[in-house]
Nucleic acid binder design. Structure first.
Lengths: 351, 351
DNA sequence: AGCAAAGATTTGATCGATCAAATCAGCGGA
DNA sequence: TCCGCTGATTTGATCGATCAAATCTTTGCT
């Protein structure tokens, strides 16, 4: 007993057998009250902790989930994954799960690493993030029988045809709510600045604006812009919109980057009170007092873990088979309203 | 052989013994060339992967390092840790190490979790981030003999007295370089906006400004401001500075948040070309075209891993003992220069 | 009291790998 | 030709836990 104590040490100290010690830890209900106490006492007297690797070897499960850390992209939106990861570690911990992170260059690389981790029996399940159109990961993991849940819905019919678990945030509903809210407060011409067509997420968000804008085809065409993500781009598009003969009286954007840009443009155009709404509620939005649509990442993570492990516990459920109803969850985001002008710009001497 | 193949399966397929297979993987040099090839062939014909838990149980090492994910603080600067984590996963992977993440509420909680992970033999070493004054973690981990490396130097004499490994970025040198650069380009009155005294990091950065500002005591007092981190705060402080009778002709800040605020204030004051320098080179700085001081996180991580595991390999070295020279590394940051005015603000119609 | 069923505890085997020591093969020198 | 030596390979034991089945205890009922 030079190093850490083992079950045997505890057993000896408590005057029982290995297995009873094991039972106290894993199925306390089958051990007699008095015995259990005696064992528990010995456990913390000796400072015993089960050896994770030994347990995993026997039980063939690692109680560990892995998630990929995307290579850093220079958008503000990477913060969402960061918050997601943080939620994941917190909630996983509560279930007695561990979280491992890894990085990969692209989907193919990611799949290779997943196989390695999986084959070493290091990981029980994976969390995929940022699903794309024609996401080859879904099919590959399904074929290999690797349990996983995706954060992001399947965007194309082919992927949809592969039964799998996913959780996503309903961007359409979020944007629709924001537009409704703006219109209820008097806005009549709500503009849209979004991403180029073809990104599932972006198109969904735009659809929310389209549905609730209350505008005709022609007006919608004139009051919407599509561009790559970025502050500069937001400023440019908003500048164009505000220069129209009939300018918008509010702008909803597909991201906080765009919204920050739009906000800057509005100030420069002498319209500091123009309502601008972003997406993801990043720290920047909070810092400059920008309204934004917040993804309920706590609920997303809770749902993801529930789909993987059930309402409680740490036993992975196998991927849904083709004939069952695939399990998924679509969550509604929340509008975080902030006063435009909250930023003390106007208080600056000399303005 | 229902599930994954094991060493025995490979051995049988290659007509050798378990141990030889093991040797091919762990000490290839002692196996005869021809045998090795035969075994390697069998390995990938069967698709064999060593079972990580079994190996760990025997070797008593997990080849895994853990790092805490801080509870999300609403500053931009959390991004530094995010980038750090990303570098860590990439470089760890190259050494065959895995990275586990966990969250904790405070130092005490962190220590408790570290103990749990450590006792389960789940983790070989830890990476501490964001060291503070009187950081109790250093002593606790040292006393417990848990191998670790800190990202952040020891800030007080007491902690310095505990020999331990650390890596840090020399904020003083970074800021000094920025100030020098500004002065070389004609600035004569470089102001400072930093954090309240008492934070080690903040004081170091300020010291860099002090040393190179070329200003007298009185001027330094008038040209420096100290405040909590935040965009709004930066705007306020910069506004004050610019309203002085003798205003600064450049501003260096302790963070990008403050710098962004300062930049906004400068624009509002009609000085869009006023040089402003931030710290950490966050995506925001890139987005709005703000100069910033970048931490060489790749080097930081490389140094940290080297201190823990040596120039190569995955065998943890024990913490330095009291009589040896504690190993540490102080790295110089890099100034990322960007044109102020890069942001197309002035191109906005109606400005 | 007697006896079966349920409950509690123990024993032997096993998970998949590596370590330590034993065995075997090949080779040069006396 | 036989011995010793080095290098290559194999065998038996072990890491620390849980599983499955066996054994021992208690309970409940007639």
């Amino acid at each position: 007993m030079s190093g850490m104590p083992t079950v045997d040490d505890v057993a000896r100290a408590a005057g029982v057998s290995r297995q009873t010690v094991s039972n106290v830890l894993n199925s306390p209900e089958i051990v007699r009250e008095t015995t259990r106490e005696r064992v528990l006492d010995a456990i913390d007297r000796l400072g015993y902790r089960p050896h994770a690797s030994a347990r995993r070897l026997r039980t063939r499960k690692s109680s560990t989930i892995a998630v990929r850390i995307d290579p850093w992209r220079d958008g503000i939106s990477g913060i969402v994954l960061d918050r997601f990861l943080h939620q994941l570690t917190e909630q996983a911990d509560r279930r007695g799960l561990r979280v491992m992170v890894f990085s990969a260059d692209d989907h193919a690389d990611e799949l290779a690493r997943i196989r390695r981790l999986r084959e070493g029996s290091d990981i029980d399940a994976f969390v995929l993030t940022a699903t794309t159109h024609d996401d080859e990961r879904i099919r590959a993991l399904t074929d290999q029988g690797v349990p996983f849940v995706a954060f992001g819905r399947p965007w194309d019919p082919e992927t949809r045809a592969v039964p799998h678990r996913w959780v996503d945030v309903d961007g359409r509903v979020g944007v629709a709510a924001a537009v409704q809210h703006l219109r209820a407060h008097g806005a009549r011409r709500v503009a849209w600045i979004g991403w180029p067509h073809g990104s599932g997420t972006g198109d969904e968000r735009r659809a929310g604006w389209e549905a609730e804008s209350g505008l005709g085809d022609r007006e919608r065409a004139s009051l919407s812009r599509h561009t790559e993500d970025g502050v500069t781009e937001g400023t440019r598009c908003a500048g164009e919109l505000l220069a129209l003969a009939e300018p918008p009286d509010a702008i909803v954007c597909a991201s906080d980057s765009l919204a920050l840009g739009a906000m800057i443009a509005a100030r420069s155009a002498g319209l500091p009170a123009l309502p601008v709404v972003g997406f993801d509620d990043t720290p920047i939005a909070a810092a400059v007092g920008l309204s934004s649509i917040e993804q309920p990442l706590d609920d997303v993570v809770a749902a993801a873990l529930e789909l993987l492990f059930g309402p409680t516990g740490d036993d992975v459920r196998p991927n849904p088979s083709s004939d069952e109803e695939p399990a998924h969850r679509l969550l509604a985001p929340r509008l975080v309203e902030r006063r435009p002008g909250h930023l003390a710009l106007d208080a600056i001497p000399g303005t």
